[in-house]
Design a protein around this nucleic acid. Structure first.
Lengths: 209, 209
DNA sequence: TGTACATCAGTGAACGCGCGTTCACTGATGTAC
DNA sequence: TGTACATCAGTGAACGCGCGTTCACTGATGTAC
């Protein structure tokens, strides 16, 4: 009956939410099946009626995180038509930085989690990311009007990677000490420099590889 | 006696080398105390006469990896006086990419490994990284002649982070599909754009944070 | 050179812990008539 | 509405595995005389 499936999905949602909260609080490595079961008020074995395994839970949490990131980026660039592409890109970068800082553990989980190489990403989990690149793609089109589409797409990825790298280095505190407050400044410098390069250089054509 | 300490250090070196080989082959998560003991031909307990724990082993392997990276960068930029700062930076970036690709697991281990937050980095492990930034710092000084020193240092880190991010996204295959061959092209594009920005823009002064 | 003793590298079984997943069973819920 | 039956969510003890680290003990090696 439908009643049953509805409840099933509600339960699964509770499970995923509980996992999200757990990761947000303690980090991915502290996620335990027993904790989740207790949290949603069922026996240990029951969670395997809701999901195949913990990997699925983690992937679903990742989906939620990407959703929220997407939302944050959309909100930040709302009415972006008033912004220059440079400003637009700076806003994206700093919004990303803030999102990462405010969702540190969830954001890390996105990159820490690696599923056993034999089993592939389930299809419902694919394409969560792709959507994010459209945020970069739009302003980039203005800055690279004469570039080929593939080229723009490739560079979206590059730019995203670059911003991500700066944010990661900044937030992990892994490399020497980075004054956390300066990250936004550095991001904005980096993005603006690239934009200057795009405008005044050779339009970012990728010759001489 | 000295004989004893010598042997101790030889043994420890063997241990670390074995760990290096193990990580290189299988990745950090496959590193096992029992494997290491077997590999260097001692009993399990003996390795705790050589090191405090596995964390120490991993940190020492990380040190070796950073040493080799440093070496690779030095070799690649030897006689760099003939290169423009732009070319110099591009060489650094692509050398980094190649090193990461050729030492995938060891390179990953550098970032995956996180020691329990209560115990701090032992002092012999500090400052392994700092050294690397001098490679970036030199050409950057030419491109940012009028910037303050702190500013240049901060931007070294930013640039390194950006390059690292692009490489990481490229090599992890985490985000959609990146044609591996294009990474160097993208790196060179990114670096050259930044350089164009530095030369023609406002010298990378970091106003309007 | 030889002997008694101290040190400490080396041994490997056992400790201690953690934890994802399974499975035989139960009981509530829905279905058929 | 009531009864017999089927389904399957839910249970939680047990399985199975992995693994870092410790520790009481041994024996080789160096030291003192």
């Amino acid at each position: 009956m439908n009643r049953v499936r509805e409840r099933r999905e509600e339960q699964r949602d509770k499970l995923v939410r509980a996992a999200e909260a757990a990761i947000a609080r303690q980090g991915l490595s502290s996620l335990k099946a027993r904790d989740l079961a207790r949290e949603i008020g069922v026996a240990l074995g029951a969670i395997y009626n809701l999901v195949a395994d913990l990997d699925e839970v983690i992937l679903r949490v990742g989906g939620l995180t990407l959703d929220r990131l997407d939302l944050a980026l959309s909100a930040a660039t709302e009415g972006a038509s008033a912004l220059s592409p440079e400003q637009h890109l700076v806003v994206i970068a700093t919004t990303y930085r803030r999102f990462a800082a405010e969702n540190l553990h969830l954001w890390r989980a996105l990159f820490e989690h690696r599923l056993p190489e034999d089993k592939p990403l389930p299809e419902w989990a694919v394409g969560n990311q792709t959507r994010l690149f459209r945020h970069i793609h739009a302003p980039l089109s203005v800055l690279m009007p004469e570039a080929k589409e593939v080229d723009r797409t490739a560079f979206s990825l590059t730019l995203f990677g670059a911003v991500h790298g700066v944010v990661a280095f900044g937030l992990e505190g892994r490399v020497v000490g980075v004054p956390a407050d300066d990250i936004d400044g550095e991001l904005s410098r980096l993005v603006r420099l690239v934009c200057v390069g795009l405008r005044r250089g050779r339009s970012g054509m990728n010759d001489q590889p």
